[in-house]
Every structure is written in structure tokens, then in C-alpha cells.
């Protein structure tokens, strides 16, 4: 597809405006992190100011390492779990259509619909029962319920678009169902797999409620820290900005490295 003529102009103008809308707040957060609290309040903002790295010093000397490690652990296991449980289910739902599977599919989707405030107490009681409180396993389990619905549905909708003939030839050649999934469906579905991975990473990296309620001192994750510093009892704006910036870096790197794989699976085009 090629945008040409006035469409191209529209596209460029739109992109520029959207980038401004999108990045001005971010730029402001980044700049604020180098100011003192008072300097962030002065309007019109001074273009030239003496930057200070006090906020970052506090972040790095302030025991943030553990917090980032926790978040990374949670996010990586979340992605892994969602893929292990999500891909086969999505494949099955996409390829076998009946009243029963459709209901199962919708039931899986509905898992994400319960509002957190309604289930946080029973989830807590459940985890306590299994002696999982204060472990990242508890957080992963809670996240699984939230990640599975959209992982399954996004992958399902993508796999449905893949012509079934590719697999059939493989099956005829004697490949097992599992081999077909791994060697044929997965490579072709890469754009969506990668997208889902990014979405889950972003989600896990930012999830606040369950991460906070289910763990205590040992399990603190980045958003918990950010929320407690952004809460109504705190006022150190540059420190909050600095932590937000630090929090965004890993997610940005992950998205940047991984998103280049959101490109057409070559096989798909060849077979159609």
C-alpha cells in the first residue's frame, strides 16, 4: 500500500501533530526530572536552567535495583506463561469452531472483565491459602487471568486469517499437530506474537493493584513505587519524574528491539 498525493500530505501532517501530542508530556517529564521542584512550577518555563541530577542520584542510591529486578521477573514470566497457555488455546479456538469452543472462547475473554476492586480480596485469600503471599508467583497467577484473555483472542483472530491448507500439507507429510503449530503457524503469526509480547510486557510492567496487594516488602514493583510517590501524600515531583523516566527505559528498549519483528511473515504472502 502506498500513500500518494494528498493522502501522503495528510499522513505527514497527522503524524507530526500526533507526535507532538504524544511526546510533549513525555518531554516535559524528562526535563522536569532535571529540575528542582520549584523550577517545575515556573510559568512560562525557562528554556535555560541549571540542570540538577539530585533526583537521579536519589533513585540510584535509593535501593531501586531490587524494585526493577522484581518488575523484570514478573514481566518475563508473565510473557512466558501467556505464550505457553495462550498459543495452543488460540490455535485450537481458531481451527475448531463449534458452539462449545465459542463459549469457551468467550468465557476466556470474560476473565478480564471483572473489576479489580471486586476480586482483589478473594484473590488475596486464595493466595494465602496456597501460601503464595509475598511471592512473585502470586502476582504472575493474578496477571495470567488478565493476560490470557487478550493473548488468546488476538492470536486466535490472527491465526484464523492463515489459510488452513498450509497445515494440511504438513499433516499429510506426517508432522504431528504440535510440530505443525511450532514450525508452521508460529513463524507465520510472528507479527501478532510479538505484538502480544509487547502488550503483556507493558501491562505487567505497569500493573499496580495485584502487585501491591499480594506482595509486601520483598515484592515491590516499579508502578507500586511510582504510585506511592505520586500519591496524594508526596510532593517531590522531580523524583517522581526521574523514577518514571527510569521505569520507561526498559519498556522502551524492549518495545524498540522487539517491534521491528512486526513485519509480514514472508511465508504467508508466498502461499496465498
Amino acid at each position: 500500500m502506498k500513500l500518494e498525493g494528498r493522502w501522503k500530505l495528510f499522513g505527514i501532517v497527522f503524524l507530526v501533530i500526533y507526535l507532538l501530542f504524544s511526546l510533549v508530556p513525555i518531554a516535559w517529564v524528562v526535563i522536569s526530572s532535571f529540575k528542582t521542584h520549584y523550577q517545575t512550577l515556573i510559568m512560562p518555563p525557562k528554556l535555560f536552567f541549571k540542570p540538577t541530577v539530585t533526583a537521579y542520584k536519589n533513585v540510584f542510591l535509593g535501593g531501586m535495583g531490587k524494585v526493577f529486578l522484581n518488575s523484570t521477573k514478573v514481566a518475563v514470566i508473565d510473557i512466558f506463561a501467556a505464550m505457553v497457555f495462550g498459543i495452543p488455546a488460540a490455535y485450537s479456538l481458531a481451527r475448531f469452531k463449534s458452539g462449545v469452543t465459542e463459549n469457551i472462547g468467550f468465557w476466556l475473554l470474560s476473565l478480564r472483565m471483572a473489576p479489580a476492586f471486586g476480586v482483589v480480596i478473594p484473590v488475596y485469600i486464595l493466595m494465602r491459602r496456597f501460601h503464595l503471599l509475598d511471592t512473585t508467583v502470586a502476582v504472575n497467577a493474578a496477571h495470567l487471568l488478565i493476560n490470557i484473555p487478550f493473548a488468546v483472542w488476538l492470536l486466535k483472530s490472527y491465526i484464523e486469517e492463515i489459510p488452513v491448507e498450509i497445515e494440511e500439507s504438513a499433516l499429510v507429510d506426517g508432522a504431528t499437530r504440535f510440530q505443525t503449530l511450532v514450525h508452521i503457524i508460529l513463524p507465520v503469526s510472528m507479527p501478532m506474537v510479538v505484538t502480544v509480547a509487547i502488550l503483556i510486557f507493558i501491562f505487567s510492567w505497569n500493573e499496580l493493584f495485584f502487585a501491591f496487594v499480594l506482595t509486601s516488602s520483598e515484592g515491590m514493583t516499579v508502578p507500586v513505587l511510582v504510585a506511592s510517590l505520586a500519591g496524594s501524600m508526596t510532593f517531590n515531583w522531580p523524583l517522581l519524574c526521574a523514577i518514571s523516566v527510569c521505569s520507561m527505559v526498559p519498556a522502551f528498549v524492549f518495545a524498540f528491539v522487539v517491534q521491528r519483528h512486526i513485519v509480514r511473515g514472508l511465508t504467508l504472502g508466498a502461499i496465498r
Binding site: Y18, I198, I202, A230, I243, S244, S247, M248, F256, Q259
Partner: peptide
């Protein structure tokens, strides 16, 4: 690069986004 830049608002922790 632009694709990655566009994802940034999604990766800022929501609590920080609201406060920002």
C-alpha cells in the same frame, strides 16, 4: 524509531501518567 517513540505514552506507569 517513530514506532517505538509512539509506544512511550503506553509505558509510562498509569499513576504517573495521571499525575503528569
Amino acid at each position: 524509531v517513530i514506532r517505538a517513540l509512539l509506544t512511550i505514552p503506553a509505558i509510562i506507569p498509569p499513576a504517573a501518567a495521571g499525575f503528569t
